[in-house]
Design a protein around this nucleic acid. Sequence first.
DNA 1: TTTCGACCAATTTGGTTTATTGGTCAAAGG
DNA 2: CCTTTGACCAATAAACCAAATTGGTCGAAA
Lengths: 199, 199
Amino acid sequence: MSNSQIVKDPIREEILNGARELFERFGFKKTTMEDIARQIGKSKSALYYYYKTKEEIFEAVILNDIEASQAKVADAVKKESSALSKFRVLFTSLLEDVKYKANKFSIFKTDLYENHFLFENIVKKRDSYIEELIKDILILGISQQEVKMMNNAEMSLWAKMMNITLKGTANKIFLEDEFNLTNSQLVFIADTYFNGVRS
Amino acid sequence: MSNSQIVKDPIREEILNGARELFERFGFKKTTMEDIARQIGKSKSALYYYYKTKEEIFEAVILNDIEASQAKVADAVKKESSALSKFRVLFTSLLEDVKYKANKFSIFKTDLYENHFLFENIVKKRDSYIEELIKDILILGISQQEVKMMNNAEMSLWAKMMNITLKGTANKIFLEDEFNLTNSQLVFIADTYFNGVRS
DNA sequence: TTTCGACCAATTTGGTTTATTGGTCAAAGG
DNA sequence: CCTTTGACCAATAAACCAAATTGGTCGAAA
């Protein structure tokens, strides 16, 4: 992705690493630009040479993290050959990742509620990425005669719906500590979405 | 349901009607107990003879409304005979209802963000109701050999997942004005969840 | 049984002052 | 030319406080 340009520059990388550590500990609001600058031993103004706004830094931090996750997921999906197992792996690894991040990034729950505008771009990018991934699985499945014929609009719609499902589930996992799904449950869910409940 | 006791008393009904009008216009926070009392020509203290807290009134107002919707949905579902068409009707009528309410209750978007604790009980009740409805459809489908064999845990899990999907979709419709689904799209979605995408 | 006004504690509001913060800029270093 | 900086500003947030509201209680009246 063209976004990997963001970390081409070692100083940008330094900024993002420093920022990430602070964001993870204190959240978006309580992390000031001076905090970030101090963290890497530079002055506040220096940050503005590399990033236009605080939001841009935050977005870059999160986006970096998301892209790493997505690369892992895409890799795992690529390893599978059938559409079903690709879909299964997509489903499980995506939600496994969320489970992990629910612990690590619990501080962002607050930001998620209070500053959800911060995540607008991030969410939009992530959505379209996931939906493309799902659509690709469908296309492959059709070409392998594993998936029934669908037109483009239908594929997009199904991908969007699956993404909503994924996000709804992720949300529940992320925000409600009680909600936990075992791996075999995730597999069951993915399979049932793929195969339906019809006898 | 035992909740219909809530409106057994004509004065309670009067309170709820007055309260509903104000809540719909001003939301939860900006509607005071005195406003509600004035609306029905009684004193504030009188309200406390019937309801313990302001939250309880709000909950009763919303619950009344939800129960009416649910009765309609349940009726529509009952009219269908196959599990697939039941599921289809459940899906479409539930989301049709949300589309309608997104206009009528747009004031609650604020409350939804700022006072989501208010909806905790409501959501819990609604969830279990919908999940039971879905599970019943599965059970019937299995008995009609229309749906593949599943054990109880699997049925519950699928019902829960479908509810998450439904809620995710409803949320998108309710909070994002752009997101609109035609009836034929809803039918496609429901059918595809039921039948899967397998060829 | 039902209604009410007086009452209270807690929260909210409105307004002011002070401190912090995001962001700009011209100048200086390398 | 690229990078860094401190001084600076406008805007927001925090701290504070007094006054007004508001949710909820209670004894008494109807």
